[in-house]
Simulated scan of single mutants.
Amino acid sequence: MSENRLLLIVEDDTAFARTLVRSFERRGYTVLHADSQEQVSALLAQHKPRYAVVDLKLNGNASGLACVQMLHKHDEAMLIVVLTGFASIATAVEAVKLGACQYLAKPSNTDDIEAAFGHVAGVAEPELSNRSTSIKTLEWERIHEVLVEAEFNISEAARRLGMHRRTLARKLNKQQVK
């Protein structure tokens, strides 16, 4: 296995993950796929990827930022790109602080991701639009910010937000971010 071209894709959307895997394999990468933080941990026990592509929102209440943090602790030289269908300045900054080299809004293709691997300065440049921010978007950004502060502990985040844990869990389950 070519360790210098070893890529880990952390994505819970099976169809999108399969497309990324095939595309990167055609470019000469050896690709591993995980759809949860637990699978990432198991793969890191056996492999040392040089690159990683991490979805910001994983199944359930899992955040890709926790995976970014784990990957960066495993290997500080790993080039990590975060993908999201929900770009925000707060999550972009947090992703870079946790070790991502770049943050891309979906839809992003293999060319975009590979170019992001070459951009290691650690600048968060999410695509910004002229649309005004909705209340729901602001609420989601605040929830995500508090989740990060609470180290992804839902009970603690709910307490800090002043809401019941189940209410927060429902909000997280309703938010369809891929």
Rank of each mutant, 00 (worst) to 15 (best):
S23Q: 11
G118L: 08
E145V: 03
N4Y: 10
E149S: 14
T167I: 03
F16P: 07
V82W: 02
N109V: 06
L168K: 01
K136F: 10
H119C: 01
A77T: 08
E25P: 09
R22M: 14
E139W: 12
E151V: 03
K178I: 07
E125Q: 15
V96R: 03
A100D: 01
Q102T: 02
D111P: 06
R131F: 11
F86M: 03
L43V: 02
R142V: 05
K106H: 06
T91H: 11
F16T: 11
G118R: 13
D35N: 12
L128R: 15
V93N: 01
E125G: 11
S88P: 02
I9C: 07
E151Q: 15
P126K: 12
E156A: 08
Q46L: 12
L83Y: 09
D13M: 04
N153A: 10
G85E: 00
A90G: 09
E127L: 14
K57S: 07
V82H: 01
L98A: 09
S41W: 04
D12L: 05
E94L: 00
L104G: 02
D112L: 10
S23N: 12
G85S: 13
T137Y: 02
S134T: 15
C101Y: 00
L104W: 08
A66H: 08
A42W: 10
A105P: 04
L56D: 01
A100K: 13
V10D: 08
L56N: 03
R170K: 15
F117M: 01
E145K: 12
D35Q: 13
E125I: 14
A158V: 04
L83R: 11
P49K: 10
